[in-house]
Amino acid sequence: MNIEVKDVSCKIGEVEILKDINFSLKSGSFSAIVGPNGAGKSTLIKIMLGLLKQDCSTGKILYDGIKVEEVNKSRHWLGYVPQNYSFDRSLPITLDEFYKITCALKDGDKYDEILNSLNLLKLKKHIMGGLSGGEIQRALIAYNLFHNKRVLFLDEPTSAIDIEGEALVYSILNNLNKVDKINIIIISHDIDAVLKSVDTVICLNKTIHCVGGACDILEGNMIQQFFEGHRGLYKHHGGCIHHHD
């Protein structure tokens, strides 16, 4: 699905959160939005999801030429895994019940298959409040898959999980992108992990500083220049993997 972000700006009161954001993402892309804290990354994806339109933003978001408002109203293509999924952890609801209540499940085999692919099958009867951060992230990815989302946004998907869990999440996302052709857009501070997986990088700090192929940006030293003032966030890299169309 082709995604276009046109002239997006966002102000809350007199504070400018985002200014003149313009970029487009190709169908089937795996993209990362990188930038320091307070750069407007989470705001940008909420605007791209159509969740903040009335509050602060101007501009247009188009998915295959269709406005995001229309997409949310009738097509429901957009999936989202928030950074902090806050819910009442004392609520006695099993993962299985959560899906049966919140998703219109029809195909029983596909249900177990998706849960298995996300290492969630054995957790089906567990109470959601007892799941770890990584398990909740995967549970929300499964929620989006049950709704047949075509674009999946993830806000810091690996911030609350260990290295092993992080590798699992990236391997799942790679699989969804390559096999199921789902557009994936993630926010991450972990540049090394991002560059190994994504094909497009958007450097954001209130405005767009660079957009392009992960390797082009890395090899052209653009990302180093972008993070010049934020050295703590970018220390080293292990190279990138060239993605071919």
Partner: peptide, 18 residues
């Protein structure tokens, strides 16, 4: 009931489902 449970547990995700 199901819709209210969905909007209670995941209001943002519910919005994305129209």
């Amino acid at each position: 009931s199901k819709t209210h449970t969905l909007t209670s547990l995941t209001p943002e995700l519910a919005k994305l489902n129209g």
